[in-house]
Design a protein around this nucleic acid. Structure first.
Lengths: 395, 395
DNA sequence: GTGTCGGCCGTCTGCCGACAA
DNA sequence: TTGTCGGCAGACGGCCGACAC
């Protein structure tokens, strides 16, 4: 497939471009938000590198230089965002086309009105169930939790005995799946029978994976899957060494930054430890309009098993560079934290400023951008490098 | 998985390092040879790039610069070669650790004795069959070609009626597969029955794929597969954009060349259009000890359906750079050719010198290295760049 | 309210030789 | 010589309520 021109990367052949946004976001999870097309964003090569490391099961090697040297945060215009799903696995990912701003453009953009955007809406009429051994066995069908069936599926005609109907659901690839929905048994329960096992084997679902049904406002039934985090699920690519991949993303960013040209990245919400393309407004608010200090308490959102959110509390224990040698003066995971709950071993010991809500006794930013920047841009610097300590009063 | 140190990349966790070499080579095909560990090789970033393009279904974009600039051919020491097979697909690939030589080392290596190496031996007791619709259907078993069964399988005890035995074969991952081998029917034929369908579904084989049985010298039965070239089989990676991958391999080679440090590449014999790591001896012989010109006739080896080799004839129609802008003075696919047979549309219009056997009326190199190099190395140049025209008397 | 099981059909897997290419 | 088929027997898929947690 020969492409016309430019560094934009098209979807693979045959991929539907009209992928259902609601379903994509439901599969991606409640915490994932994609910045708006045309908006300004901050891109973190370190975070991108973490995603590659997670995808290849390979940490960044100590001997890979930051080569060629790239700023730890690039302000870009987001020219395009497209939602995709892997044909084989249904894994959701987004493709973004970014264009680094010139130093002049970076100065100007700081005075534009804030574009905080709307957080992505999770669908309201949906449910998500983790599959049991019985659900995935060939011996039977799928047991639908009662509240879920009543909320999400069309009502059954209870004059029939037993009440039953055919459900037609569409997945991320717009494929159609038909299920017999029946209410039977003693005690009575909702079941999906005929059609269910075809779906399970086609998607290669196993106990522990989750399925997700949405009843949208157009009265369509949508169907997504989320695979359980299996330790061995991500295979190292046999295409390119992980070292080359890390160098590749750095080189792509460096080349784009030096020529102010576009480059393309993929964001895998469920594979990546953290979002690494952040809306500029969110970044500015967190980094320049929020005062944090060691000992400060904060809250942070996490996703639950059932695809909803809950807050965990913690305390800031330090503020310093994650990787002082290769990424000095980076805001990426610059905050060291301790978590209140004892199961905290699963939560990362370092977070970025825009991921947390510091708890203060007084509102320090009554409305966005009501506080002026003392110094909107360091005169001599083309990027954020070196700005952190000056602006935040740290150290 | 945290690695100890260095830029060497280890196998994914759990991968057997003692992968059977015979079986790997049989799956890779008769034309694939891996240079010996410790030997000197020439690495072609262009060829590596072609492999990435083939794996991502994405041509190299015209706007990707050769960035940072790399020599089109790097002389390296081959520190390590390991054979691998993809856990999901059984696709064979090799991982190589290469270290570019310093300019001084490059000069010295030209005067070392030639190491032409032995071509990789294909096993003798083996057969390869393309699966029919009946072979892959759930309705029956596998029909073993008579000559194949008699040559490769242990002899049956014909005193039984019908004669039958259990065969145990091991695949690339050293997994065991059991088959009932029976000689029955009217007319009599060899069949694999019980166990066959488990294998077909586990490996997801379809009609058109091939299986390969080897009876080795340790009296073990080995079993490999080769999938048919399906147009849509290679998915674009959702990990890294293909542009970044191309930049990554160039950056990795450039960094290694500038620091004389090791780097790691993957070679997929059945995905890559051509080998891009060539033994130095083969390269030197083809480029400096063979005289070719436009109009010259040549032969070239190709693999057949049945995993043997045959020669096609052609005529040299031109000798020039494949990509003069980004890769000037490269020997990669520098020879334009026309093929004798009318089905020639499937064979590439450009080949490299070491892939062909020019037909001459007199032997121009009675024994390797009997001709001295007029000028072993261009004094001012650290690499092969600019050498081609001088040394070969072209243009 | 829901996960798993025994029971019980019905369909499809899978082994056989027939037959033809 | 070997690819495909009809025939047939048995295994397993898949629908049901029972039962327990």
């Amino acid at each position: 497939m020969k492409l016309s021109a430019g560094m934009d990367q098209q979807s693979p052949e045959g991929e539907k471009s009209c992928l259902n946004s609601e379903l994509w976001h439901a599969c991606a999870g409640p915490l994932v938000s994609l910045p708006a097309i045309g908006s300004h964003v901050v891109y973190f090569p370190q975070g991108h590198s973490e995603q590659v490391a997670a995808s290849t099961n390979k940490e960044v090697d100590g001997q890979i230089p930051n080569y060629p040297s790239v700023s730890p945060q690039l302000i870009c215009q987001l020219h395009n965002v497209t939602m995709h799903a892997d044909i084989e696995t249904d894994e959701v990912y987004a493709q973004m086309t970014l264009q680094p701003l010139s130093p002049q453009e970076q100065k100007e953009v700081f005075f534009l009105p804030a574009d905080l955007g709307a957080p992505s809406k999770q669908p309201t009429n949906y449910f998500c169930k983790t599959l049991t051994a019985s659900d995935t066995s060939t011996h039977g069908g799928f047991s639908v939790p009662r509240r879920a069936a009543e909320k999400v599926f069309p009502p059954l005609d209870f004059s029939q005995q037993p009440p039953a109907q055919e459900l037609i659901a569409r997945d991320l690839h717009n494929n159609e799946w038909k299920f017999r929905h029946i209410f039977r048994g003693q005690p009575k329960r909702h079941l999906l029978t005929t059609g269910w096992s075809v779906f399970v084997s086609a998607k290669r679902l196993v106990a522990g994976d989750s399925v997700l049904f949405i009843w949208n406002e157009k009265n369509q039934l949508l169907l997504g899957i989320r695979r359980a985090a299996r330790p061995q699920t991500v295979m190292p690519s046999s295409v390119l060494s992980s070292d080359s991949m890390h160098l590749g993303l750095l080189a792509a960013a460096a080349h784009a930054a030096s020529t102010n040209s576009r480059f393309t990245i993929f964001y895998n919400p469920r594979a990546s430890p953290s979002e690494f393309v952040i809306s500029l407004a969110k970044f500015v608010r967190a980094v320049y309009h929020t005062r944090v200090s060691i000992g400060m308490r904060f809250r942070m959102l996490f996703e639950t098993e059932e695809s909803s959110v809950r807050r965990y509390m913690g305390t800031i224990t330090g503020i310093c560079d994650l990787d002082p040698a290769r990424w000095p003066n980076s805001h990426w995971r610059s905050v060291k934290v301790g978590w209140d709950e004892s199961t905290a071993g699963e939560r990362q010991p370092r977070v970025s400023l825009w991921e947390i809500e510091p708890l203060t006794t007084f509102p320090i930013y009554p409305s966005p951008f009501s506080l002026r920047l003392k110094r909107p841009w360091p005169p001599g610097l083309p990027s954020f490098s070196g700005m952190k300590n000056d602006e935040m009063g740290l150290n």
